[in-house]
Design a protein around this nucleic acid. Structure first.
Lengths: 210, 210
DNA sequence: CGTTTTCTATCACACCTGTGACATAAACAG
DNA sequence: CTGTTTATGTCACAGGTGTGATAGAAAACG
């Protein structure tokens, strides 16, 4: 029975317990004792790997953000240039790409839900404000890149980026809190319709009334 | 010194203290003792008007929902028929109307922020789930009415209602949590642009490319 | 071997929570 | 007046929290 364990792996395991707990019972249910129980460790062990609750929370939120970011980056590398695609194909590809942010299946729902809880908590928790700003700026920056890829005129790029970011966060919010009302199908359809409505301006050949 | 006080007024005052506390320090900071302190009452008095914390929370959330609903109804009665307005005027009027939902000034920001906290808490708090569903269904129903007023084809009405609801909630979420990043001006502009983009389909005379 | 570091585990303490129970007092009813 | 209801306080208790301090065991080091 090896006693020397991988410290980073342990921290990740504990953070996972935090995320599982927060997703299932909400952030207020996350305490050092509940995390210890969820991870099968003793509270003393948890405290050995983290300076305290604040440190634990910061780490858990950071690892959530990093996980989503990594998944997006991975997806991004597999994107085909929009110039090779029809407007329809482009919309589909971008929908699948941005859907990585949405709570469309169990793991993504857990991530999105926990992130929403963290973002709300960060409003009054100064330990998390920096991470919250980073996360919010991230989806806005992502939206901005999408808007630029669709070659929207610069005059409306900022506005459309804000609109897309708000739509993404709104879909996440509604679907994470009430998945029976805002189902994964609704999320996909809404997102796709939105991207399509942006695309028609970009590609003159798609304008039906011309 | 009158001892016989208006019970309903007292309950409303206490609920106000809950909302102020939740807006300033977050829902987790709301306890019977903190509410008593915030409202200038004794904890015994608070407990005299409410059966307990659960009752207090339910009442506070309900009064928040009712307040927003009442403001919207009041605004609604002053709306001019869209048929009397140019598409531009219609978009402006609907923007102002729906802006009642957004955190554009201090009181509305407090309301929206508290509502977000309640909705998130309701995910795991069975006492609040019914109210949360009511609130979420409310903004969807409101969006639905807007979409119908814009005379969008029924084939896309459901989708557009969901999209508008998500946009409203997303703007609320982002602006309530980080008003410096999603400013009131951004909210207005985004909302107005969205309504305008819906309107062009409704009114053929506004189509520029025809 | 002994020493040191790493890891696990437990106790104790102060603090905060909701709530049951009770006392006190003011206002009203008869 | 007496009795009752309404309202305000206060106390105590069990349960939860983070954290400081400490102990013990196991692995790694010299």
């Amino acid at each position: 029975m090896p006693k020397q364990v991988d410290g980073e792996q342990r921290r990740a395991d504990i953070a996972d317990a935090v995320l599982r707990l927060a997703a299932r019972d909400g952030l207020p249910a996350v305490s050092l004792r509940s995390v210890a129980a969820e991870s099968g460790l003793n509270i003393g062990s948890v405290r050995h790997y983290f300076d305290g609750q604040r440190d634990l929370m910061r780490f858990a939120m950071r690892s959530t953000i990093d996980r989503v970011t990594a998944r997006l980056e991975h997806r991004r590398s597999a994107l085909r240039p929009l110039s090779e695609l029809t407007p329809d194909e482009a919309a589909s590809q971008l929908t699948d790409f941005l859907a990585e942010l949405l709570p469309l299946d169990a793991p993504r729902r857990a991530e999105a839900t926990v992130l929403v809880e963290f973002l709300v908590a960060a409003r009054v928790d100064t330990d998390l404000t920096a991470l919250a700003h980073e996360a919010m700026r991230g989806t806005l920056a992502l939206s901005r890149r999408i808007v630029e890829a669709l070659r929207l005129p610069p005059a409306v790029a900022d506005l459309e980026a804000q609109r897309l970011a708000a739509l993404l966060d709104g879909l996440t919010f509604r679907s994470a809190l009430q998945p029976d009302a805002t189902t994964p199908d609704v999320c996909r359809d809404v997102l796709r319709a939105h991207l399509a409505s942006l695309g028609v301006r970009a590609d003159p050949a798609a304008a039906p009334g011309a």
